[in-house]
Each structure stands twice: as C-alpha cells, then as structure tokens.
Computed example of a mutant assay.
Amino acid sequence: MGIFTIQPVPFPAATPSTFLPMTWLTFFVAYLPALSCYFCIGSTLVLQQDVISNYSLSNCPHVKSPLPPISYSIGVWEPQKLVWLFALMLHLPARIILTMTVPQVYLPGLGKNIMTSAATFEALGLMCVSIFSVDSIIGFHAHASFFVVWWAAAMWSMGIIIHLQRLIGQKDTDPYIHRMWWIKIALMSSFFAVSVGASVFYPLSQIHCSVTAFTIFCLCEWSVVGLNAAFWGCYLTEIAREFEGFQVTAIKPRKGNLTEGTITPIDVEKKIENTLPGAVVVKVAY
C-alpha cells in the first residue's frame, strides 16, 4: 500500500483550525480589488486601443471617449472581465471574514451592528455591480443602482469607523492612531468629493456631448476605487498592530461530562490564547 495507506487517528480527533495572517486579510480585502481594477483599465489602454476607439458616449454616438470607464473595463470587455471576476472570487471570502470578525473589536451595541451592516452591504453592492454589468439583462439603471448601494455602504463604513474611534478615545491614547485618524478623515472627504464630481460630470457629458466632462468623470471614477482601497488599507494596518491574524477554529457543542475529557469551547480558546498570542478567534460550530 505504501504512501496510499490511510492511517486513522484516535477519536475524538484534534480540533481542526487554521491561521490566516493579517497581511493576507489586508491584501485581499483592501488592495486586490483596486489593483485588479487598475490592471483591467491599464491593459485596455495599452493593448486594446481598438476597443476604446469604438466606444462612444451613450447619448452621443458620434463622440468617442479617450478613456475607458470602469464599468466597461471590468464588466463588459474581455479578458479584463474574467480577471476582475477572478479577483472578486478571492476578495469576497476575505471580506466575509472581515465582516464577521473585525467589528468584534468593539463592544456589542448599536455601533457594532451598524458597522457590521455597512461592511455587509458594501460587499453585496460590489458583488451585484460586478454581476449585473451595464449590458446585463436588467440594464444600465440597475447597474447604477447597485453602484449607489456600494458607494453608500462604503461611506457608511468609513463614517462609523471614524466615529467609533473617536467615541472610544482610541485616537487620543495612541499618536499613531491619531495621525491615521486624520488621514482616514481626509480619505473619506476625498472619496465623497470625487464621488460628487463623478455624479455631476457624467450627466453633463451626456447632455452636452462633452469629451472633457466624460474624461473628468472617468478620472473621478478611478479615484473612487483607489481612495476606498487606501481607507481600508489604513484601517486594517492599524488592526495589524494589535493582531497577528485570524484563527479559524471548529468549536464542539457543550455536551457530555467534563470529567470524561470532553473538549469545550473555553478549553479551545484558552489553548489558542496560550499558543498563539495576538490572534482573533473565529468560531465555527459544528
């Protein structure tokens, strides 16, 4: 039989667990979507000038755009669309972990629930924007509506993070957090400003068939992606100063006689705390 021999382990088996480094979470949540988006835009500009030359404004078929909008770069043109969907497939599991665990650094209450809801809607909005592209069966207006959901949830997340850090006094006890707090305010303000710019210059470009207005819209749209990534990168970098990563551990139900050697959730958590300091525990019951 050799290496194909399967050796059973004594039952009950050891509690299954895995460790996810904080750098992994930061990259896949904050930076991967932005890098993939910019890769799709850059590859279109460099390798597919013919595609851009054939793209015209929706209400002005005789007006050609020199820059590709994000919606077409990641949702219509290929192979960029496939690259984006692959990046999204890697991003969403990390985002789910973020949604389930990062809000736990705050005490249970309204603020924590609001932050969890905001992070959830932000992920759902991004997923719907990617699936229901501008040329999907439900059309442009539905795509734009999902983008608004993502944008509102992103603003919601930024605002509640800044507010909670002020509320608990975190920015007043650590000079590093204090500097980063002001940086996050600047990023949120810039995010809002360029979003307003995009919402103003897009209709102007369609009404007046203005290439200049559409170019400014594209630049604002590109900036929104980068500013969102920078904000989450700053926040997760702050958390990385306190936590090394996330420990995903299966927890057995509280059954049986403790004197018979049954492993309880408390035992598992104590074991993790003793062997892996600086880890956030993600409990998976089965």
Rank of each mutant, 00 (worst) to 15 (best):
A13K: 11
P16G: 00
S17W: 00
F27R: 05
A34D: 13
G42Y: 03
V46S: 02
Q49Y: 13
Y55E: 08
L57A: 01
S65M: 03
P68I: 12
I74M: 04
V76A: 04
V76W: 05
E78D: 11
E78T: 10
P79K: 09
V83E: 15
F86H: 13
M100T: 10
P108Q: 07
L110F: 15
G125I: 02
M127A: 14
M127S: 15
S133E: 11
I137Y: 04
V149N: 04
W150V: 09
A152D: 07
W156T: 13
S157A: 08
M158A: 11
I160G: 10
I168D: 13
G169S: 03
K171Q: 14
D174M: 10
H178S: 12
M180Y: 11
M180W: 12
W181A: 07
K184N: 14
I185R: 07
M188R: 07
V194S: 12
S195Y: 01
S199M: 02
F201R: 00
S205F: 08
S205T: 03
Q206D: 10
Q206L: 06
S210D: 10
A213H: 07
F214M: 00
I216C: 02
F217R: 01
E221I: 06
V225E: 15
L227T: 06
N228H: 10
A230W: 14
G233M: 04
C234V: 15
L236Q: 09
T237S: 12
R241A: 09
E242M: 05
E244M: 11
I251D: 02
K255H: 07
L258A: 06
L258H: 14
T264M: 10
D267F: 09
K270W: 11
N274M: 12
T275Q: 12
L276G: 03
G278S: 10
K283Y: 04
K283E: 08
K283D: 05
